[in-house]
Nucleic acid binder design. Structure first.
Lengths: 250, 250
DNA sequence: CAGTGGTCTAGACCACTGC
DNA sequence: CAGTGGTCTAGACCACTGT
């Protein structure tokens, strides 16, 4: 009882101090998966801190996935920390300019059709939509960085003149003009097909990184894009700290 | 004034109703980037809801990155929704068993050295560490799914007999025995080298997906693993809803 | 059915910051 | 320096759930 129930560092908001204190203990395995944390009322008594503040700290830990809270039972260290790595997936311009290189965009072709979107397993397939298909590429210091094949559902977006895409990358135009509420990314590896190899200036069969992105607004597909990067010109990086602690802690 | 400031659906906790109401408006571009949300006190007055509850809802939106809150100025719709896609990156066993296939693990080689970890740009390089290097592969229904090259910093983990890894995949053993607080994932594409091609039973040069994962405990590297998947046997999928809304909303 | 977390309130003080 | 959000409290009622 004379032993402190929790060691606070005295810096920053109380709820953050409490959250970090438990995050540290969990990260250091001082509290192991399945262990029960003190009850809220125990912490309020021991630390002389309002229950709302305690609750806020524990709620944050639950949101991070570090603990699981059960009524009548208590709060427990989660059995498995989720491995949801946040991956930053931006438009090609960002990658290229972030590397200090000059960005250039090149439209290769546009075709209007009324077929269905390829690989569209969701929602209403039966009805035909007006689809715009286009191919383009993005260059870094005049070296082709990525080839893009894109399908746009013209019935799900505001009216637009195709000539817009002569100068503006479709991904960027869509991002700033179209509302969407769900996206899916699929990363895979493929050998460069003939057309991609040509536009990317690599040998056919070269190992390439492929990113497929589908975007929905409600149940309607807005756009589907396939980006093909030569393997040595791109990687996706994700970094994360499962306990949400400051660096150098531990 | 007779116009409702915000339309609540009357289901679930108040703070969630408020959060979703604004998330919908932002998702539908009814509130555009840069627009100011009502002040907390305006919402308290208009909705007759306590400021703590209002604050909690807006705080959640800020945590999601949908809005930015500035003292003395107000709360504003964020200029750009962050594109941090949550990618699920698990151990090979999970992928294989989730697909309903039989999992098998095979240790190929182990080598103990005292060199530095390759590509270790962080922390103290000067001192030598005791490193265990091993290669192994994971099979799905007896088809090689992924080849693994791993380096383990034996000075950063509990004592372990190398024979453990005859039967237990090192990734899984480390996950359940070693505390770590930071991880980095890098996804890229490479052509299969001779050794990988052999163990994966594909042609040399086959396009492969490569996942590099580095794990740290404090400033010490715990482990570094390179996973090589034949391009047609693996992809990484990430799905997200930037506004945190229920499906079918919109 | 007793005890936990989930939510909500009315009020308070404070830090920061744009004007 | 005035107004915003950030934090905290003491208390309350309720929903859920393990025993």
């Amino acid at each position: 009882m004379t032993e402190a129930l929790l060691q606070l560092d005295g810096e920053g908001p109380l709820h953050e101090q409490i959250r970090k204190a438990f995050a540290r203990k969990i990260s250091a395995r001082e509290l192991k998966p399945g262990d029960r944390l003190p009850f809220e009322h125990e912490l309020t008594d021991a630390l002389n801190i309002s229950r709302m503040t305690i609750s806020r700290a524990l709620q944050a830990l639950a949101d991070e996935g570090l603990i699981v809270r059960k009524r009548k039972a208590g709060s427990f260290v989660a059995e498995q920390v989720s491995h949801h790595t946040p991956m930053t997936i931006g438009v090609p311009r960002e990658d290229i300019q972030a590397a200090g290189m000059t960005y250039r965009y090149e439209l290769l072709s546009t075709v209007g059709t009324s077929a269905a979107l390829p690989g569209n397993e969701r929602g209403v397939q039966a009805e035909k939509m007006k689809i715009l298909h286009l191919t383009c590429r993005h260059l870094a210091d005049e070296t082709p960085m990525v080839m893009e094949r894109r399908w746009i559902n013209l019935e799900a977006i505001p009216k637009v003149s195709v000539s817009v895409f002569n100068d503006t990358p479709p991904g960027e135009w869509l991002l700033s003009h179209v509302a969407w509420n769900e996206a899916e990314h699929v990363i895979s590896a493929v050998a460069a097909d003939r057309e991609s190899a040509l536009h990317l200036e690599v040998d056919e069969g070269t190992a390439c990184l492929k990113l497929d992105r589908r975007t929905w607004s409600g149940s309607a597909t807005v756009t589907h894009v396939t980006l093909i990067y030569p393997g040595d010109r791109k990687s996706f990086v994700g970094r994360f700290q499962p306990a949400g602690l400051d660096p150098e802690a531990g």
